[in-house]
Design a protein around this nucleic acid. Sequence first.
DNA 1: TTATCTTATCGTATAGCGACGATATATATG
DNA 2: CATATATATCGTCGCTATACGATAAGATAA
Lengths: 125, 125
Amino acid sequence: MRIKALNPVHERTQNIMAFPRSDKFDHELLCLADTARALSHPGRLAILALLARRNECICGDIVEELPLAQATVSQHLKVLKEAGLIIGTIEGPRICYCVDWKAFEKAASGLANWFSGIQSRTSCS
Amino acid sequence: MRIKALNPVHERTQNIMAFPRSDKFDHELLCLADTARALSHPGRLAILALLARRNECICGDIVEELPLAQATVSQHLKVLKEAGLIIGTIEGPRICYCVDWKAFEKAASGLANWFSGIQSRTSCS
DNA sequence: TTATCTTATCGTATAGCGACGATATATATG
DNA sequence: CATATATATCGTCGCTATACGATAAGATAA
């Protein structure tokens, strides 16, 4: 039973961590901002690093490792899932989380491209 | 009259946009999270892009270009300044903003390094 | 000095985030 | 079915972010 990442990185986040229906800005900027927002908490960065290191974790593993309560970890996992960066697989009574590498790379290259795009737009280096 | 970026990217943000209870996580993660947070609003991304495109802007230019009020733009500029990404230069009655490219590149490579570090920590590619 | 221009700051309102205890949900096992 | 395990969700609290009008602060020009 595979649970896909809720949102591909090229779409907007839907529930949590979504900007108030701001049609004021480009879709691209909104997506990048969403990605950055998903990465804007040290706990979520630590979760991603842990998932990468161990290849996969259940929620309890993460709770053991991080200085956060179970409910808090679960909330961060939800944010990461909605950002499309991680995947949850149901394995009996527990849920096995792992990084969605495809989406992760997409997010990484999205940010990297924006950075280099910005940098190339200057004349004085 | 040069006003340096308030905080180098390798230090923590001080006033606005700083995480509470920062002693729970690694300094590195906190810095990365701060950087991501500074980039987590489409308006700030748009401001950075605009500054890169025009090389430099006064606040009024940005207000003209973005769908945000002057006070709001000024607040975003403050966040970017505190994140160490932009520099303000006083020129008579106005303040000329430009990207702090050195810090910008540091932020970019910091994120890129984290991404590749994460990606290299997996066995199943 | 006075008027003008530009930007920062203040005050305020609303919404969102972060954290966690408590509880509900879901799955397996006895 | 009852119990144990694992996780999501709920409810709540305090704090932070976003936004903007109004005002203050700074520099310049008349």
